[in-house]
Simulated assay, not measured.
Amino acid sequence: MTENEISKIVFETGLKIHKKLGAGLFEHVYEECLFYELKKAGFLIEKQKLLPIVYEDLKIDNAFKLDLMIENKVILEIKTVEYISPVHKAQLLTYLKMSNCKLGLLLNFQSDVFKNGVTRIVNNL
């Protein structure tokens, strides 16, 4: 399955969750619901995946913590903020580069309209 096919399913799943629960909950609630739904759909999905970083001879095993990684291809960063700022986008782009993934989705469940809270970030896609 391609990154774009996965992202379509993630969007539909996020929309379902947003319609059912609405905005205003903590990030981990939406993360758990996404994990549950995507796992139920048969995806290989990792929650709170740690990514290392190597600096010269130093390896820092837990340098980054991804919210969700799907099929080792797509990274989901879950937010419940008033708006997505440039630092949120930079954070996800860094995760993409460090993991060699090509697509990331910022899902802001605080948005009144779910589609307005979704931002795609690409890394050489």
Rank of each mutant, 00 (worst) to 15 (best):
N108H: 06
E31H: 09
K40R: 15
I9D: 09
G14K: 00
A23L: 12
E71W: 12
F64C: 02
L25H: 15
K49R: 15
H88E: 15
P86Y: 05
L66T: 02
F35H: 12
K89R: 15
D67L: 02
Y95V: 05
E12A: 09
L21D: 06
K40A: 14
K19C: 08
L34W: 01
K16C: 09
F26T: 09
I45F: 11
L103C: 10
H18Y: 05
S85P: 00
I17N: 01
E3L: 03
N72K: 15
T94Y: 02
L76Q: 05
H28T: 13
V81Y: 02
L105V: 06
L93K: 13
V10L: 07
H18L: 08
E32H: 15
A90V: 07
A41P: 04
I75Q: 06
N4H: 11
A23Y: 08
I6T: 10
I9C: 05
E37P: 03
L15I: 06
C33Y: 05
L107V: 09
Y55E: 04
V74I: 10
V81I: 10
N108V: 07
T80N: 14
N100H: 12
L96R: 05
F26A: 11
I75T: 07
Y55W: 12
K39G: 02
M98K: 14
V81P: 08
L105S: 03
G24D: 02
K97G: 02
E82F: 02
T13D: 01
M69G: 00
I78K: 01
I45R: 12
L103P: 06
K20R: 13
I6E: 10
G14T: 01
K49I: 04
V10T: 03
K59L: 12
D67S: 06
E77M: 10
I53H: 03
T94W: 00
I9R: 08
V54G: 04
L38E: 06
L96T: 09
P86Q: 10
S99H: 05
G104W: 09
Q48S: 08
L25C: 06
A90T: 13
E37D: 10
G104L: 15
D61Q: 14
K102Q: 14
L51N: 04
L38T: 06
F64W: 02
L21K: 11
N62R: 13
T80M: 07
P86D: 11
E37H: 13
I78D: 00
K16M: 13
Y55A: 08
L51G: 07
E71C: 07
N62I: 07
N72Q: 15
E82W: 00
T80P: 05
G14Y: 00
F43S: 07
V87M: 11
T80R: 12
L66I: 10
I70Y: 04
I75M: 09
L106I: 15
D67I: 04
L68W: 10
F26C: 09
L44N: 12
P52D: 11
L105Q: 04
I84K: 05
L51V: 13
L103Y: 06
